[in-house]
Design a protein around this nucleic acid. Structure first.
Lengths: 195, 195
DNA sequence: GTCTATAGAAAGATAGAC
DNA sequence: GTCTATCTTTCTATAGAC
């Protein structure tokens, strides 16, 4: 099908979102202007409002897509039935998935407070759903005696904080490969929850 | 000594800093205006510039004070010579110190990217100094065989991320006391690094 | 030490031409 | 679908009165 010149709705939308993600990650949501985003894309500021109702909607879309993408990716993984192997699989998945998209992770964590109350509740529910996946694994291993956890909920939060923390320091081409990092973290995770 | 009416330099400065900390923590540095800070304190916006060269200086002062306070507090602690006890002491100290000042911790972590390059380098050096305290403990235990660590630096970063993560969910009056939280985290820390 | 007033720049969002 | 132009608000920072 031929497409009219100057009509780019299917390509401009994603480019706006990519530019917003990049700029929000680098400078923070509140510090980035709609004009900056437009300049990055190569359109005028007014044109942005064809693709988002407002600046807040742009942020919300980024966070929502990140969280639903994360949940969908985990849902698509094959899960071992043994809790220890299941936890290892989760550890690998979490580290690799998050290292693959550092800007999404950074923005999703840093800009939560810039969401309106309703948008915030939506994202929080998604995040909680993800946490529950890990908590179920830990509870499973606790129930069959492979893990020894004083508190499954706290262990969930502690492990996720530890694993997501990799994003704050990891850089491609650094001292350790992703595989090596994963192995080192798995060693600590495994021992931290061991019976 | 009598003090002239309308002269409040020794009290207004700290109040400005307290207001800035509160507002930066709640809304983010970039989203808070000097007018908001002034309104919170009860002075006019122009008066703020008697106490800080600019908005950036206000942020830098908050972060610098937090980091130097943290280092001074740790320096004042008595350190057990046994690495396991030393690590336990660090775990307690880190959790309690950080839970005691959630706004400082939050701002110090979230607003790093809003520092100018020179200010950023200064804060990063202080943070690194603190990390080195933990790393030395871990290395000590590794050397005498009480700990088994594939990588002392990564273990340092992993443990600090895990411990600081308490601040993201802990609320006074919640399900668990600080003491109980500390005990649960210490159980995981201890096992994660155990030989 | 604090105030009022303001300079000068930039923000979010909209209207209407093409 | 995009642009130009603009409305309205708000911002940081400074000047000068008291």
């Amino acid at each position: 099908m031929a497409r009219k010149t100057g009509s780019h709705s299917e390509v401009t939308g994603p480019r706006i979102r990519a530019a917003a993600l990049k700029l929000f990650a680098r400078h923070g949501y509140a510090a980035v202007s709609m004009r900056q985003i437009a300049r990055e894309v190569g359109v005028q500021a007014g044109a942005l409002y064809l693709y988002t109702p407002d600046k807040q909607g742009l942020l919300f879309g980024l966070l929502q897509d990140h969280m639903t993408g994360l949940l969908a990716a985990w849902a698509a993984e094959e899960k071992p039935s043994d809790p220890v192997e299941h936890l290892h699989h989760f550890t690998r998945f979490h580290i690799f998935y998050h290292l693959e998209r550092p800007e999404d992770v950074f923005v999703s964590y840093m800009e939560l407070r810039n969401l309106g109350p309703e948008n915030f509740a939506t994202i929080e529910a998604l995040r909680r759903t993800y946490e529950d996946k890990l908590q179920a694994i830990l509870q499973d291993g606790q129930d069959n005696g492979q893990f020894s956890l004083p508190d499954a909920k706290l262990a969930t939060l502690a492990l996720i904080a530890m694993l997501t923390g990799v994003n704050t320091w990891y850089r491609d081409g650094g001292r350790l490969s992703r595989e090596k990092v994963e192995a080192i973290y798995w060693d600590m995770v495994r021992k931290a929850v061991a019976a």
